[in-house]
Structures are given as structure tokens and as C-alpha cells.
């Protein structure tokens, strides 16, 4: 992980030998530990157990998976704390939960519940069409979605400690996640190859992103926080694809519990993320999984969740 001012500031605080919680290093550190793993959407404690049994590194506790949010319509909000408690009691792996974009009160409640990560998510109905949550103000770390590098850097400047592609949640269609990952990873590569500072000023303008973060990327060649993939993973091959494109871990939403054999699909996707570069192993684990989730053509969607976020 790259050095940054927050890290050294927290290091100074800890050097008085008082343990420091909620520091950037500690928040980004958990994201480091989730790398190479699968974070699964679950709506019941039973599903959470299936996810843990299959080797998930974390579960996202929510009321409806994105495919059902799409089908049901209406306003989609933070989950019932009772349900989050039940999921926390059911598993020993980290539990994440979603707040609406800009809904800092929901995030405060999720922190009070002791969730391990908050996803300020476009999958729920936005609460604020201008502002995102000030994530620096929290001890709990945040993950946010992004469709391009500018969006990712704006979220990081607001305190996000993990970025995931948005993809198009609930579709079982990987095309949008691929678009987002290629855009983010491609722009990082182009910035790292920039000729001089003047080009970085221009990149910051084009991306509507803070210049210091653009300069950091020019130096390190990587995003300042881990980059995960979400939105549309439905098969082990999808997981391998996004990992090969530069994702460091995978969120799987509807793809598991909308398939015909969730425990089998869940373990297969876990193994696919570990062995993403090994086609022989992937061929073996992709066989006989039953039906993947049905999936939707993204061009025909009434609501594009990926367009939420500013």
C-alpha cells in the first residue's frame, strides 16, 4: 500500500503507544485482507451460512438482492438492523451493509451496529443527489462504486477505502463491469505514462478529480486503495475475466442465490477468484454447476443504477 499523509499522521498518534482505531491504514488494511476473495450478497442468516460454508471472505447483508430490487421497484433503503444482527450472529467472517448515497444517518446506524464495512451504494435509492457521505468522519471503513477513474478518485477524496466497479447490479450481465474496469485501469496506465506535470493538471481537470491523487497515481501506477469488481458476475468465467482485467476481488450479488444451485455456484466462484489465471482449473470448476442466473440485456433496462453517484 502506498504511503499517504493520513497514514503517517495516524502513525504519529499511535507512537504515544495509545492504540489508534479508524485510521486510514487500519481501514484500507481490511480491504487488503479481502483481496483474492469473494464478498457475497445475502438476505437471510441461512444464506450467510451458505456463503461462509462456500469460502466467502465477507457477506453483504441486505434486504433484497439487486435483481429483486429491480423487479419490485419502490424505494430501496438500509436493511433492518434486526436482520443485520442475525447475519452477524450467523457467521464469523466480516459483515458489510449498504447505506443509500449521501444518507449519513443510515451510515451512522450501520457503524453503531458494528458492521465491518459500509457500502455507500447506488443499488439503493439515493438520498442526496449532490453530496456523498463524508466518510472521513467515520471509524468504520467505506467502499464505494465507480464507473470511471474520476468517480473513483472523488470517492477516495471523500474517504472511501475500497473502490468497486459499479457494473450494472442485478443483471447477471458482465458487460458494464468490464467497461468500468477497463476505463479505470486504462486511465491509471495512461496517467502513469504521462510526460510531465502539465499533463497531470489536465488529467485532474478532465477527470474532475483532486490533483494530489492524480499525482500519486502517476508515481505509483496503482489506485491508492484496493480495486474490486461488482455488478454482473454470474459464473466462474466472469470472475476470472474481471480478475484478469485488474480487479483484486469480487462482489457477487444476485449471481449466487439466483442460480439453480447456490452452494455449488458460490464455491466455484470462490475457487475461480483464487485460480483466475489457470484455465485448466477453471474448466474443472465450471463444469456441472446447473443454471446460472437468467440475466438481463442492459440496453433494455428502465433504471441504470450505475448512473447514480456524482
Amino acid at each position: 500500500m502506498s504511503a499517504n499523509p493520513e497514514t503517517s499522521a495516524s502513525g504519529a498518534a499511535a507512537s504515544q503507544n495509545r492504540p489508534a482505531t479508524g485510521t486510514t491504514l487500519v481501514k484500507r488494511g481490511l480491504a487488503e485482507m479481502l483481496k483474492g476473495g469473494v464478498i457475497m450478497d445475502v438476505v437471510t442468516p441461512e444464506q450467510a451460512r451458505i456463503a461462509e460454508d462456500a469460502g466467502a471472505v465477507s457477506v453483504m447483508a441486505l434486504e433484497r438482492v439487486p435483481a429483486d430490487i429491480r423487479a419490485d421497484g419502490g424505494v430501496s433503503r438500509m436493511s433492518d438492523p434486526e436482520m443485520i444482527h442475525q447475519v452477524q450472529a450467523a457467521v464469523s467472517i466480516p459483515v458489510m451493509a449498504k447505506s443509500r448515497i449521501g444518507h449519513f444517518a443510515e451510515a451512522q446506524i450501520l457503524q453503531a451496529l458494528g458492521v465491518d464495512y459500509v457500502d455507500e451504494s447506488e443499488v439503493l435509492t439515493p438520498a442526496d443527489e449532490v453530496h456523498h457521505i463524508d466518510k472521513w468522519a467515520f471509524t468504520v471503513p467505506f467502499v464505494c462504486g465507480a464507473t470511471n477513474l474520476g468517480e473513483a478518485l472523488r470517492r477516495i477524496s471523500e474517504g472511501a477505502c475500497m473502490i468497486r466497479s459499479k457494473g450494472e447490479a442485478g443483471t447477471g450481465n458482465i458487460v458494464e463491469a468490464v467497461r468500468h474496469l477497463r476505463s479505470i485501469v486504462g486511465d491509471i496506465r495512461r496517467i502513469a505514462a504521462a510526460g510531465d506535470e502539465a499533463e497531470l493538471f489536465e488529467w485532474a481537470k478532465q477527470l474532475r478529480a483532486p490533483l494530489p491523487l492524480v499525482q500519486e497515481i502517476a508515481g505509483t501506477g496503482v489506485l491508492p486503495v484496493p480495486l474490486f469488481c461488482a455488478g454482473g458476475i454470474a459464473t466462474p468465467a466472469d470472475a476470472s475475466l474481471v480478475m484478469q482485467l485488474g480487479a483484486e476481488a469480487a462482489f457477487v450479488g444476485s449471481g449466487i442465490f439466483k442460480s439453480s444451485d447456490p452452494p455449488k455456484m458460490a464455491s466455484a466462484i470462490v475457487e475461480a477468484v483464487t485460480h483466475f489465471r489457470d484455465p485448466d482449473i477453471l474448466a474443472k470448476i465450471s463444469a456441472g454447476l446447473g443454471r446460472a442466473m437468467a440475466g438481463l440485456e442492459t440496453a433494455a433496462l428502465a433504471t441504470k443504477m450505475a448512473e447514480r453517484g456524482w
Binding site: S10, G11, A14, S15, N17, R18, P19, A20, T21, G22, T23, L25, V26, G29, L30, M33, P94, V95, Q111, G114, V115, D116, Y117, T139, V140, P141
Partner: peptide, 27 residues
């Protein structure tokens, strides 16, 4: 130590090291 909000960093003394070691504890 509990869930992620209890995760912390602190300096510890390690046998054989001359100065303290900055340690990060995650869950």
C-alpha cells in the same frame, strides 16, 4: 478484539529490535 471498528495500530516492543515496531491489527 471484535469487529473492524476495534481494529487498531500501535507501537510494540519486539525482542531483538532496537526500536519499537509499528504494528497494524485488523480483526
Amino acid at each position: 478484539y471484535g469487529t473492524q471498528i476495534e481494529s487498531f495500530e500501535a507501537d510494540i516492543d519486539v525482542d531483538g529490535l532496537e526500536s519499537s515496531f509499528h504494528a497494524v491489527f485488523i480483526r
